[in-house]
Amino acid sequence: MLVHSRTGRWTAWAVLAVLFLPLFALPLLVILTASFSTHWSGAFPSGPTTAHYAAAVRGESLQALTTSLVTAVTASVVALTLGTWAALAAAALGKKGKRLLDALFMLPVAVPSVVVGLAVLVAFSKPPVLLNGTPWIVILAHTVLVTAFAHQSVSAAIRRLDPMYEQAAASLGARPSYVLFRVRLPLLLPSLTAAAGLCFALSMGELSATMMLYPPDWMPLPVLIFTATDRGSLFTGSALAVVLMAATLLALLAVSRIRTKASYR
């Protein structure tokens, strides 16, 4: 412990409370409150209502939510497969090859999402692969963006995996493919689910590349939130944002339940 005196400790906590609560807790609280209000032109909101939520779960809004969910699930599954595959392949390579592969797969993190959107737009707006105007172009961009994170977390998990398990399996007569499916992947399962949660959350909140790409009939939730706030419907936007956060949290919660179960086995 760093601070021993009672006053010192209280001062430290006060600093934490003064900085932490307004900065991080307040924004989320404000959005939550606003989503239940019709007016906010003073210190406190007024006109409690649930009308925004009633609107948020039907029509255009509901469609945006399902669009986001479908996009996020598809992108996460593909990204996880691709990222895990690359991470496993990299682990089997020599030092140089591993570095190159890791760098390649980490590149999308460094490239601005807007640029990823632009690049995908430029590349797939013309034959041979014409995806512009279809949902696939959004899903594709999301996949590119989240693959890097999937790769990163799976790589880290592989590095932490003790080679003694693989060696024990090999000494018992298991060929490499058997070791992969019966030992390594099961042992990586907790990390894989964590990576899946991360990918899902990132895709759910993705706005930059999506703004560049979305066709009119495939408008994910963040875009809808933007169009709502842009035309001044802040309260509707808040309700949609709460729906977005809730959907993300639910998915993360589900994933962490699978995860504790997997690591407890």
Partner: peptide, 11 residues
Amino acid sequence: MVVQQYALFPH
């Protein structure tokens, strides 16, 4: 083979 840390498959 048996090693120091046993390497039993935890899952």
